[in-house]
Design a protein around this nucleic acid. Sequence first.
DNA 1: GCCCCTAAATAGATGTTTCCTATCAAACCG
DNA 2: CGGTTTGATAGGAAACATCTATTTAGGGGC
Lengths: 301, 301
Amino acid sequence: MIDKLEMFIALAREEHFGRAAAAQGVTQPTLSAAIKQLEDQLGVMLVWRGSRYQGLTPEGQRALDWARRIVGDARSLRQEMRAAREGLSGDIRLAVIPTALTVVADLTEGFTDKHPNVRFSVQSKTSIEILEMLENLEIDAGLTYLDNEPLGRVTTVPIYAERYVLVARSGHPLLAGPVAWGDLGDVPLCLLTPDMQNRRIINQHMAEAGVAVEPQIESTSVVVLVSHVLRSNWATILPVRAAEIFLAGDDLGSVPLVKPDASHTVGLVAPHREPFTPVLTALLDRARTLSDIPAAIPTGR
Amino acid sequence: MIDKLEMFIALAREEHFGRAAAAQGVTQPTLSAAIKQLEDQLGVMLVWRGSRYQGLTPEGQRALDWARRIVGDARSLRQEMRAAREGLSGDIRLAVIPTALTVVADLTEGFTDKHPNVRFSVQSKTSIEILEMLENLEIDAGLTYLDNEPLGRVTTVPIYAERYVLVARSGHPLLAGPVAWGDLGDVPLCLLTPDMQNRRIINQHMAEAGVAVEPQIESTSVVVLVSHVLRSNWATILPVRAAEIFLAGDDLGSVPLVKPDASHTVGLVAPHREPFTPVLTALLDRARTLSDIPAAIPTGR
DNA sequence: GCCCCTAAATAGATGTTTCCTATCAAACCG
DNA sequence: CGGTTTGATAGGAAACATCTATTTAGGGGC
C-alpha cells in the first residue's frame, strides 16, 4: 500500500508513467498496475486516462494530499527508528536559494562534528522549487525567504535578515559611499533571473524607487554574476551574506544599498509533521542557535 | 506495511499475541511474523520478548505513535475516497459517557435524513475509555466532558453545559425546592461508579460542600440508578440532559442542585487529524449547530 | 490522409511474499 | 512435576508483485 502511494506521488510529480516508474526503480507496467490497484482499492479514478497522462482527477488530488502525509510519516518512522538504532544518521536533503548558499556552511558547522553519520546533500533551487520539493518529499528542509511570498503549511525558523549591497570592481565610482536604489537607473547590472525570488525583490525595490530594471546579464548563478562584475564595469546587487565570500580579495568592493534599507528574512523551512524526526529536530535546533546572527552591513572599501 | 502497523497497534492494545491476532482476523503465527518483519524492517526491537508479551520497548512506544498516525491517515484516505464515490457513507463509531447518551439523538437527528448511508454505532464508555479508544482508532469520535480532566491532542466541539438535578420519586420531601449540595449529607443516594467522571464530579462538589459521599447503590448505568429511585426513597444526582428522559411521567420529580450552580461542559471529541474526513467534518458541523442549545434547568414538580 | 513515433495498457512467465495448519519450546501455575 | 498458556518455528499452498515482450491508442509531421 505505501509502495503504491509512493508510486502515485511519483506519477503526480513526473506527470508521466514511464519517468515515474524509472524514478521509483520499477518498470512502467509495474507502475501502471500499482496505480490501477490503488484505484481499485479506493474505488475511485485517480488519474485522467487517455493514451497519455492527463493529470489527476479531483479525487486524485485529494488522495495525493493524504498520500504525501502517509508516505512522509512512514519515512519519519523509519528514520526515527534508525536514529534510535545507530544515533543520528542518514542524509539531510537540503534545497537552498542561490543567495543563501553560503549560510549552509553555518548550519553544517558543528553539526557534522556532533553527528558524523549525518550526510548533507545540498542543491541550489528557486524558492518556488523548494516549496514544491518539500511538498513532494524530495527534500527534508529548505533554506529560503520566509516573509515575502506565501509558504504553505511548513515549519519555519528564521536565521537572518537579508540586507543588500552593490558589488562592483574595486575603483568603481559608485563604491565611494552608500548607494540608493533610486541611483541605479543607468548602472549596468548583472542580476539573477526573474524566476528567483531575490530578483523579484530587487525588481520590487527598484520599481518602488522609480527606476527600470534592465540587467545586461541574467543568470541563475551568483558565481556567473560575480565573475562578470570582476571583468568589467558591471555591478551586481547581492545580499550581504552572498557577497561576503567574494569580498576577501582586493578586486571587488561593496557598498550598502539604502533608501530604503531593505531587509527580508531568510530561514529554514521544513514540513510541518509533528513530531519531528530526531535529525530534523537537531537541524531545526541548530538553525535556532544561528537565528541571532546579526547580518552585519559592511561598508565599501 | 500498513497491515503490519495495524497488527502492531492491535498488539499494543491487546497486550497479547493471540488476542491481537484474533482481533485482526489472522492467526497467531501470522501476527508474530508480521511483528518480527516490522522489527527487521525498522532495525529495532519493538516488543520485549520472553515467552509472553512483556510490553513495548521505548522504540516500540515511539513507533506506536507513528503507526497510529499512519494507519489513521490511511483510513481517512479510504473513507474520504468512499465518500467521494458514493456520498457520505460508512459507519461513525461513537463512544459516549452514560450521562450524555440522550444527547446522541440530538446529534443523529437530521444527520441520518441528510446522509442515509451513514450508520452510527454508539457505545457507553467512561471518559477515560473514550480517550483510549480514540487513541487506538477504535472509535471515530466521542461525547464526553471537555473541561474537567486533561484530554490530550484532540479536536473538541462543546455542545452543552451540564447542570445537575436531584431526582427522586414524586412526593419525596426534598423535591419541594432547590437543594444545596451541602444538604445531601444524609440523603440515601444511588450514584454512578467512581470510574465515571460524572461520579468524580459529584464527589468533588459534595466534598467541597463538606458532606461525605456514601451511595448505597453504585452502577455504571443510569437506568439502574433511576429504576432504584422509582422503587424506593433513594435519590440520585443526574445532569439535566440525562434526567429529562425519565421525567416525562408523574412518577419522578427533580429539583436543581444549587450552591454552587455546578456546570461542566460536554461536547464532541475527535482525533486531531487535518484535514478531517468528510463524514467527520459533517459530524463536527452538526455538533456545532447544537452547541448553542441552552441547558434548561427544570424545577421540581 | 497516411505513417511513424511515443505513451500506456495488456499478456504471460517467474519469483517472492504471505498466510495458513501443525508442531514445538519455554515459562508459569497449581 | 504435569498441565496449561503463550509465543516461535516449519513447511506448503495460494496470492501477489514484477519482469519482458507485445499490443493498442493518440498526436504530429509530411
